[in-house]
């Protein structure tokens, strides 16, 4: 079987969709292509179906929150959503990343390209509060249905409770809601 020659994903994408690519970052041999959030579906479709690229496996979608205690962050780039895609044919990975604003973080869903994105995106809807337009089932997945807030945002408190030691045991037992029969 003839395998078409591997293309450089960055150059191929820049040629095909020149206004989609916002930035390219190289770190520890990992390539990150930062793209325009409104074009994520066409970018993904291109990366999956173009001969010479064939990123056919969606490994992971992970979201990161750039919120900072000192409010030293870019309001238009508060959330980052990284798509880790993998090409089995050429055995290489690629990260496609979008930055989303603090107000109404919204990005197109890629579920129609990879069904695997269904649950990965649901987790981000649940944990980060990012909206995926066109997602078939945008319910909470890990937290209870009636949970308020998005636990993995940086401004969501960890929910720390005082640890019980022998010196403060009486104080804690007083407030602890112990169960009855």
């Amino acid at each position: 079987m003839d395998i078409p020659k591997a293309l450089n994903p960055v150059e191929a994408l820049k040629n095909a969709l020149p206004d989609a690519v916002a930035d390219v970052v190289e770190f520890r041999d990992e390539t990150t292509i930062v793209v325009d959030p409104t074009k994520i579906r066409s970018v993904m479709q291109f990366l999956r179906d173009t001969s010479g690229l064939i990123y056919n496996f969606l490994s992971d979608i992970s979201a990161v929150d750039y919120w900072d205690q000192s409010y030293n962050y870019d309001i238009n780039k508060r959330f980052g959503v990284s798509y880790h895609i993998y090409s089995m044919l050429y055995n290489r990975r690629l990260r496609v990343k979008v930055y989303l604003p603090e107000e109404a973080p919204t990005v197109e869903s890629v579920t129609s390209i990879w069904p695997a994105a269904n649950w990965l995106e649901r987790e981000i809807i649940d944990m980060m509060g990012v909206k995926f337009v066109g997602h078939p089932d945008p319910r909470r997945v890990l937290m209870p249905e009636d949970w308020e807030g998005y636990p993995h945002r940086r401004d969501y408190p960890l929910g720390y409770e005082t640890i019980q030691f022998s010196f403060n045991v009486e104080e804690i037992i007083k407030h602890k809601p112990l169960a009855k029969e």
Partner: peptide, 15 residues
């Protein structure tokens, strides 16, 4: 800042 684990069981239950 962020740690995220992609875990196989999550994908398999999704499938």
């Amino acid at each position: 800042r962020r740690v995220h684990f992609k875990t196989p069981s999550y994908m398999h239950i999704g499938a």
